[in-house]
Amino acid sequence: MKVKKYLAPSMTEAMKRIRVELGSEAVILSSKAVYKGGFLGLFKKRNIEVIAAIDPVSAPLQTVTKQKKKKLPSVPQLESQVPYADESGGNAELLKEIEGLKDMINRIQINSSDRKYPELLQKPSDYLTEQEVDPSLRSKIMDELLEKWFASKQRSTVEEVQGWLEESMLAILDQVENGKPGLQKKYINIVGPTGVGKTTTLAKVAAETMLKHDLKVAFITTDTYRIAAIDQLKTYAKILNVPIEVAYNLEDFKRATERFSHYDYVFIDTAGRNFRNPQYVKDLNDIIHFTEEMETYLVLSLTSKQKDMEDIYRQFAAIPIKQVIFTKADETSTFGAIFNFIYTHKLGAAYITNGQNVPDDMEIATSSQLLKMALEAKKYERSS
C-alpha cells in the first residue's frame, strides 16, 4: 500500500489533491490540524495534515470495476486487515489508526450524485438538504463539519456537532451586515416584484420609525398601475396619520419631495409588476429620482423559488440595493434561500416579516435571528 502525507489549507483542498494524485479509490487514514510559519511564535497559519493511502496492486482491478458501475464510492470499504509499508519503511502507529477508523470510513461513500457521512454528521446533512440549502454551500458546510469530526478523533457528541453546524451557518450570515437597517438617508425606497408584500412592508417600517423613534414620516407612491395599491397605502397613511402623495411621473415625484422637505423620512412605494420585464426597472428610473439621499431595499418573498430570487436580483441590479427584506416567513418551513442568497450575493438582510399585522409581524434580521428562525422552522432534533 502506498501511503502519502498531504498538507493543505483545508480538508476540501486536501481531498482534491488526493483524488488527483492517488485516485478516487484512496483511503483517508488520519487528519489533524497543524500550524506552520509565523513570526516569533505568532501569526501561525492553520493547515490540515491528511495521511492517505492507495493499494497499487488492486488499483487496476478497481479501475476495470469502475466501468461497470454507474455509481462509485470514492472511499472504498477497508478490509479487516491491510498489510502495508509506507515509503519510510513502515509505521506501526498508522496500523492502529487504520483499525480505529475502519468502521467510520466504511460509512463514508462519495460519488458524483450522492454523499454520505458518519451517523452524527448525516443528520445535519439531511437537515441542510431539507432546508433547500444549495448543494455547493451544503458541501462547504459539511466539509467543515467533517474536518472537525476528524480533528476530534470521532469522539464528538450530538451537541458538539449541532454547535459546529450553527457556527458554520452563522459564519455564512456574518459575511455581510445583517439586522442593521441604515435609514441613514431621508428617502427610503422599497422595490420588488408583484405579490411580495412591498406596501405592507413599507407601512411596517414607517410605523416602527414613527412609534419607536418619534420621527415625522410621509409616503410617496409610484404604484399607479393598481388602484387597489394606492388605496391600500392611503389606508395605512390614514391609520398612521401621515401625509401621502401619488407620483405619476418624475415631475410629480420632485414636487412630492419638495412638499416633504421638512420631514425626517419619506417612504416610497413602487409598482409591483412582472420582474422579467426589463421595462419595469426602466420605468422606475423614469419616475423616481435616485439620488445620494436615497436608500433602496429589495423585497423578496421566502415562498419564491430560488431561481426566481436570483432572476429578481439580477433585474434590479441596475438600482443600488442597500439590503434585502425577506417576507412571508410565516408561509414557509424552509429557510435555505436566505443562506443561499446572502452567500452568493454578499448582500445583507434588514428585516424579516412573518404576517400582515402593522406594525407588528416584523423583526430586525440579525444573523442570530435568521439562524434561530431557520433552526426552529423545522426543528433540528439533537437526539440521534
Rank of each mutant, 00 (worst) to 15 (best):
F267A: 06
E258I: 15
A329P: 06
L202G: 05
K204M: 11
D231P: 08
I338A: 01
V158W: 06
K102A: 12
L40P: 00
V205F: 07
G192R: 07
F326W: 12
S31Q: 10
G100K: 15
K44T: 08
I105P: 00
G182V: 09
L170Y: 02
Y84W: 12
L120K: 14
E292V: 09
K180G: 00
I141G: 00
E79Q: 14
V20I: 02
E258S: 14
M104Y: 04
I98L: 14
L302H: 01
L145T: 05
P193D: 07
I268H: 06
A337L: 11
F316I: 04
N189G: 00
D86N: 14
M1R: 09
S125W: 07
V34E: 10
R107F: 01
F150T: 00
S384K: 09
S261L: 14
S156Y: 01
N47D: 09
F339Y: 03
M309V: 10
V299L: 12
F335T: 02
H213W: 08
E208L: 15
T296R: 05
Y35T: 02
I321P: 00
N354P: 05
A329Y: 06
T303N: 07
T334G: 03
V242A: 06
K2R: 13
A203N: 05
K238M: 12
A317P: 04
K216I: 08
F290A: 00
A203T: 05
E130V: 05
Y84N: 06
G89L: 10
E119T: 10
A53W: 01
K216W: 02
S88N: 13
K234R: 15
P83R: 12
Q369L: 11
Y280F: 12
Y35W: 11
K379P: 00
K346Y: 00
F260K: 09
V281N: 08
W164Q: 03
T209R: 15
E258N: 14
L101W: 07
L302F: 07
E132R: 14
E258L: 15
V324R: 01
E99V: 14
I105L: 15
F267Y: 13
V191D: 04
Y236W: 13
F267M: 09
Y117P: 04
K378H: 06
L72D: 06
I352S: 00
E144D: 10
N357F: 04
I51H: 02
R155E: 11
N178Y: 05
K123T: 07
A85V: 15
P60A: 07
Y187R: 11
S368I: 10
L137N: 02
T221G: 10
Q232W: 09
Q323S: 15
K2T: 02
K123S: 05
A337N: 12
F260P: 04
G348D: 02
